[in-house]
Design a protein around this nucleic acid. Sequence first.
DNA 1: ACGTAAATGGACGGCACCGTCCACCTGACC
DNA 2: GGTCAGGTGGACGGTGCCGTCCATTTACGT
Lengths: 235, 235
Amino acid sequence: MPAEISHNTDDPASAAPLGTAIDRLPADLRPDARRNRERVLKAAREVFAAQGIDAPMSTVARRAGVGVATLYRRFPTRSALLAAAFDDQLAECATVFEEALADPNPGHGLYTLLETVCTTLVTDRGFDTVFMTGFPEALDCGRERACAEAGLNHLVQRALDAGQLRKDFDTADIPLLLLAVSGLAGQPPETALPAARRLLTYLFQSFQAHPPSRPGPLPPAPRMDLTGPHRTDGV
Amino acid sequence: MPAEISHNTDDPASAAPLGTAIDRLPADLRPDARRNRERVLKAAREVFAAQGIDAPMSTVARRAGVGVATLYRRFPTRSALLAAAFDDQLAECATVFEEALADPNPGHGLYTLLETVCTTLVTDRGFDTVFMTGFPEALDCGRERACAEAGLNHLVQRALDAGQLRKDFDTADIPLLLLAVSGLAGQPPETALPAARRLLTYLFQSFQAHPPSRPGPLPPAPRMDLTGPHRTDGV
DNA sequence: ACGTAAATGGACGGCACCGTCCACCTGACC
DNA sequence: GGTCAGGTGGACGGTGCCGTCCATTTACGT
């Protein structure tokens, strides 16, 4: 089938193929459509947070009180929905990141940053996967991510220079820590959250350049069940 | 349909309903069946290790070079297959556990135990989920697990008494550590393995009762990508 | 060699989810 | 009020996996 490499060149609409509604700005939407869009996003956030990003689309639609067609019209692919649903949280994440960079005390900035991110990671199952996988297809992760990595390097370097981190600390220890924390994400939030805090504390005490002879206090240890869902997939 | 509550009472074989092959000891199997059984187990270990315990049964069957019916005949449910497939590793795990309990130096025993377990966790994706969820349905986890927990308590207590662990260490920190390590399980083994070792070292340095003023060396930091599969599922 | 029961593989119906299509509403504009 | 593009919901075909059923093959005892 060599000739006519798709692109159906005879269709005049091919210049603006999908120009009906999908790629329109939310502001141009008819009010009812706009309202439904918001409902879908809200439902998506809730469902993905609870069940993970593999939750059936129909579940999201039902929860939003709309049909699947409406959902697919606004967000043609799961990735599109995910990107839109987690956009706020990702932006918030970026804000915290900037704050950390601006903190005069790099060690403190780093700790606060990680504490915030980890809290979200462990509380929102969907955000966990989205953040961790970086979603190559959904986000312009190229620039974004490179920039984040550069910022992280800078932050770590400052903390090292300030003598707040042990000399053999490596920037790669940050993703390491994030992955470790996201391992707790399967637990129910009420145990995962204190667990994450305790883990973070343990690790930060290890990261210190000159640990005090008597280590600082730990947040309380939750009763870990680990007979829980762990991750295999949806509820 | 009140009368005759199934059980087709007229069938004389109903006394030993399924006594054909499923519940027979492997030894009584016909040699070809026995060989196939082994093939299936081998394939299951490989596939589950690589793809996780949700891998399609047909994949296992194909890899074993048998039909699905053969697989289901030997292992009527996925859990049964999992239990059989991971039985060896679980037993080996128990052995290492006993060795740890027998170690005159409790801290060293604990460390070795965890290092071994973590290595397996991070290398074998299927074992990770099986071990972590404990598989209530598949294993007689009741006694087994209670016993393990008791042993763990004992081990930790001995290490505490020996002054090898900080006073605020809690037995729950062990599952915490395991979960954290299993968070690395999504990474490809060649980075997950060094990552796990480094994480373990960091944590153990934090667990110490009296950390030296200059902390011990760390195993090398792997290049962490975290744009990897992470976990969502499938390949 | 032959009969029988165990063993096998692939086909099949069932199910859950995906993503599209279409016939029917509805809000904006004349 | 009428028109119509934009919006909607549910039905529908497609796909992948599950677990069973059955016609055929294979090993073992005689």
